[in-house]
Every structure is written in C-alpha cells, then in structure tokens.
C-alpha cells in the first residue's frame, strides 16, 4: 500500500470534494461504531445498558466487567473468566505459527531454487490445500488425533493448525523467493556453499519482510480460528474464541452484556495490536493471499 499516490483524482468543485469527505467520514463511523459500542458498554454497569442507551457514555464508569471477563465470569461450568483460555490460545498459537513459518520458508526455498521434476504439482497440491472447506477434514481428523493420543490437547491443536497453515506459508515464501535472484544461489554454489548454508547465509538474512508477513498472517488466522477450536479442544485446551462464544451464548442466568463486550475486546486485542503495530505487513499478507501465481 505504499504505492505513490498518482493523479487519478477527479477534479471537481469544492462541493464535490466536501461530499466526498462527508461520505468517507460516514463510513469511518460505520466501521468504528461496533468497536465504540463494545468499548463504551464494557465500562458501564449492566443496569445502565438495560435501561439506558447503548450509544451514550456511561454515567457510572466501572472496570468490573473487565475484571469479570478476565478472571471470574462463568464459562461453561467453570467461573474462571477468560484468562486460562487466553493462555491456551497463546500456548497454541506460538508453536503453530513458528513451526508452520519455518516449514513454509524451507518449502518455498526448495520450490524455487531447487526445482525438481514435478515441483509444479507439489506446489499446486500445497496451494489448493489452503482453500478446502475444513468441514471436510473434521471427521477423519478427530479420529487421527484420537489415534495419536492427542485429541483434546493443545499439541493436537498445534498439529492441526500447523498442517492447515503449511499451504499459505509455503505460498508466501515461494512467491517471495521466486523473485529472489537465482544467480545468488548459483554464485554461492560456486563458492562451495551447500543446501542449508545457502538458505541460512544467503536467503534467510533477506527474508525478514516475508517472515513478518507470514507470522502475522498465521498468528491472525490461528488466533481467530473457531472451527478447529470448537471441534478438537477439551475442557483444559479450549482456545479464546471458543471460550468467548461459550461466554456470550450461555443460556443460563442473566445476559451480562458488559462482560461480553469486555470479553470480546480481550479476544480481539492481540490481533488488533498486531494490526495497529504492523498494519502494512498485515495488508501485504492479505494481498498475497488473494493474488496468487
């Protein structure tokens, strides 16, 4: 998105430009509104939400909903708050992201710089695997995880996210390394460097941008996943998204909207922070995922 602005601009009167700005600002409101509602109502007492107006600032400010959401709200059968599940998600995300990124980098390196007969088919199959509806693997995966003795565990979830992340990480690195000059690899070969030395000494030092893109992409995807979490987790391995859904859609008791909003923000916080800190790379990942080849 760093492309220089160019002169596509419509030259119009001040009124046209004013209208453009008004429309743009209306959409700013549209996109920010749900976030605003969540924030404002997460610091209101429940009573005020039910009797008051969702759009208004709290009359009484309170951080109690946040405390509840984090440490003692009823999730499923446990009044544990979201904290243990937040930790579950971290424990799941970190190894899944790192492993799939490392494998993706190696795969991309092989598929561009050490092409062998059939490399196109291998890449095609890896790429296509990004797009399967995951419903198709739920049944056999449940059985295989059971067979491996890791069903309902965090290592089980790591394995699942690792496997179904390889396609995208390989795609990212493959496209990046495809633009990496092959002559550098050849020069290194003449210098006597082997497969891993070339990767380690020549390609990897230049891979920081794509590594960041890949890590952000994988982090966002794995953190935000719900389907695998809902299918393959057990009481002590439930990830954040599933816990949030349990919190929000539990049918017992009073609906504590303020706690729900605080919980939703907590679940969104890690990816939002990543987005705010490195939005450029986030967008690049989205683009790379959309425009293939």
């Amino acid at each position: 998105m760093s492309a220089p602005s160019q002169d596509n601009a419509v030259k119009g009167s001040i009124i046209t430009r004013a209208i453009i700005y008004v429309v743009l600002i209306l959409f700013v409101i549209y996109y920010l509104l749900p976030l605003y509602v969540m924030l404002v109502n997460s610091v209101k007492p429940l009573e005020e939400i039910r009797s008051g107006n969702m759009m208004e600032f709290p009359k009484v400010w309170t951080l109690e909903p946040w405390r509840a959401a984090w440490s003692y709200a009823q999730i499923g059968v446990e009044p544990s708050g979201l904290r243990p599940y937040f930790i579950n998600s971290i424990l799941m995300v970190v190894p899944a992201v790192l492993l799939s990124t490392i494998l993706g980098a190696l795969n991309g390196y092989v598929l561009t710089k050490w092409q062998f007969k059939g490399h196109g088919i291998v890449f095609g199959l890896l790429l296509l695997s990004c797009f399967i509806p995951f419903q198709i693997v739920l049944i056999p995966m449940a059985r295989v995880l059971g067979f491996l003795g890791i069903s309902g565990t965090i290592p089980g979830l790591v394995l699942v996210h690792l496997i179904y992340g390889i396609g995208f990480t390989t795609l990212f690195f493959r496209n990046y390394y495809a633009a990496f000059p092959t002559e550098l690899v050849r020069a290194a070969q003449i210098d006597g460097a082997g497969f891993f030395q070339i990767f380690w000494r020549i390609l990897l030092p230049s891979s920081a941008p794509i590594a960041v893109v890949t890590i952000i992409w994988q982090f966002t995807n794995v953190w935000n996943d719900f389907l695998f979490g809902a299918s393959f987790s057990d009481f002590d391995s439930v990830p954040m998204t599933v816990a949030l859904n349990n919190l929000v859609s539990s049918s017992t008791g009073v609906k504590e909207y303020n706690v729900h909003f605080a919980g939703a923000i907590l679940a969104a916080l890690p990816t939002l922070i990543v987005y705010i800190v490195s939005g450029r790379y986030f967008v690049r990942g989205l683009m790379a995922g959309a425009v293939k080849g």
Binding site: P181, E183, L184, R186, A187, A188, Q189, I190, D191, G192, A193, R201, I202, P205, S206
Partner: peptide, 20 residues
C-alpha cells in the same frame, strides 16, 4: 563435479553479490 570443485570462478550478469 560440483561447481565448487571445478576450479572455476564466475561473474554473473546481475553480479549476484550477496546483499546482506
């Protein structure tokens, strides 16, 4: 023989200098 064992040296079109 592997390129590194042929006792040759090569200068490439793009120079192929290791950027890092």
């Amino acid at each position: 023989l592997h390129p590194s064992k042929r006792d040759i040296a090569m200068v490439f079109q793009s120079y192929a200098l290791y950027p890092n």
